[in-house]
Simulated scan of single mutants.
Amino acid sequence: MVLRNIQKFGISNSPLTERRIIMIQGLSNFPSSEKLPSDREAIISVLQSPAISKIRCFALGPKGTNIGQACQKWVQNTGIDDKTIIEFGETPEKCLEMARQVQSPDEVAFFWTCAVYYNLFKLFFENPDTLPFFVSYVMLLDEMQLATRQDLVGRVQGDGIPKNWKIASHPSPAPLVRNLGCQVVLVNSNAVAAKSCSAGEIEACITTEMARQIHKLVKLHSFGSPPMVFFGGITAAGAEVIKEVYSSL
């Protein structure tokens, strides 16, 4: 189409024009979802098929994050526990990179994200060869809360905490404490926030109930457990495996 327009309007094939054509022709395309299963039952049938020997899920870690818990529940509900391995990554972007490494013709890799991940739009548009929203799963968030160490509980007066306290938080839920006036230290996940607090690096954290229990922290305030949407994405290699298996069912 570009070449036809150039000929139609008499645009010369100068070096500059040719470079522009190369740039346009080199732009990425989103993958087609044609020949991929689209409904839940069909996806489950494909993933349960013996033609797929292993499923690897990469989720934000360490243990205790909402994304990790949602991934685990999705695996259980899909009935693929026996052949699924869940591995933790430092960030959703790292999880995508880890998923790209899976190239076996009988394996499928999923990288997991969340609807409120603050960089989700960048992950989508900077990786146009992937399908980040291939599956979705709705789960009530594991109770989001503000927590601290047992040895600091005595410094909490009524509903107030010292203003010089530092609070560890993933960037997404950080606005929950914007009115406290405390310094917020950004970390990679809710579980890392709990670990940082437990290690004495900061005084408080925004975390999940599971992470609070793992790191033996004390809950100061509960933000609640609203429903959240989580996404399991697939790479180009994974999409080809799924298409092949789906076509043979």
Rank of each mutant, 00 (worst) to 15 (best):
Q72F: 13
A199E: 11
G26E: 05
M1F: 10
E97K: 07
N164D: 15
Q7E: 15
H170P: 09
V102E: 02
S38Y: 09
V75I: 08
S32G: 05
T91V: 05
L249D: 06
Q69R: 15
F30V: 12
G200I: 11
K243T: 02
K94E: 10
L36T: 00
A109H: 02
C71P: 05
V192I: 15
G68E: 06
M1H: 14
F133H: 07
F110M: 06
S136D: 12
I52P: 03
G79R: 04
L36P: 02
L249T: 09
D81V: 15
I206T: 05
W165G: 08
N188Q: 11
F88M: 09
I242A: 01
W74H: 08
E126C: 08
Q183P: 10
D142G: 04
D151K: 06
A59C: 04
R19W: 09
V187E: 01
R40S: 15
C205V: 05
S172D: 10
F125D: 09
K73M: 13
N190L: 12
N5Q: 15
V108N: 00
F230P: 00
Y118T: 13
R20E: 12
W165N: 07
Q25K: 15
V185R: 05
L47T: 02
K94N: 12
R149M: 07
V218P: 09
V46L: 05
M23W: 15
S28I: 08
L141P: 06
T130R: 05
Q48I: 01
K163H: 13
P128C: 02
I234V: 05
G232I: 03
K166E: 11
V135T: 12
F133G: 01
V218R: 10
K219I: 08
V135G: 03
S53I: 11
Q157D: 14
S32N: 06
L36H: 01
T65M: 05
M228P: 12
C71W: 08
L96F: 02
I80L: 07
G158L: 07
V102P: 03
L36E: 00
N119I: 10
I24M: 14
N127I: 01
V192F: 10
F133R: 04
P227T: 10
I214K: 03
A168N: 03
R56N: 09
T78P: 04
E90G: 10
A237E: 07
F133Q: 00
E41I: 13
E201V: 15
V177F: 00
L141I: 13
K8H: 11
F30H: 10
M23T: 14
Q48F: 10
A51S: 13
I55V: 10
R20T: 14
D81F: 15
Q69D: 12
A193R: 00
H221W: 12
W112N: 05
L180W: 09
F124Y: 13
A168Q: 06
P37Q: 04
A109T: 07
E209T: 14
L27C: 11
I202Q: 02
D129I: 00
T84A: 02
G79I: 04
E201I: 15
I85F: 12
S45L: 10
Q213W: 11
S189G: 06
T148Y: 05
R178W: 13
Q157A: 12
L140T: 12
L16A: 15
P105S: 08
E203W: 01
D81M: 15
A42Y: 08
F30K: 12
D81W: 12
L220I: 07
T113E: 00
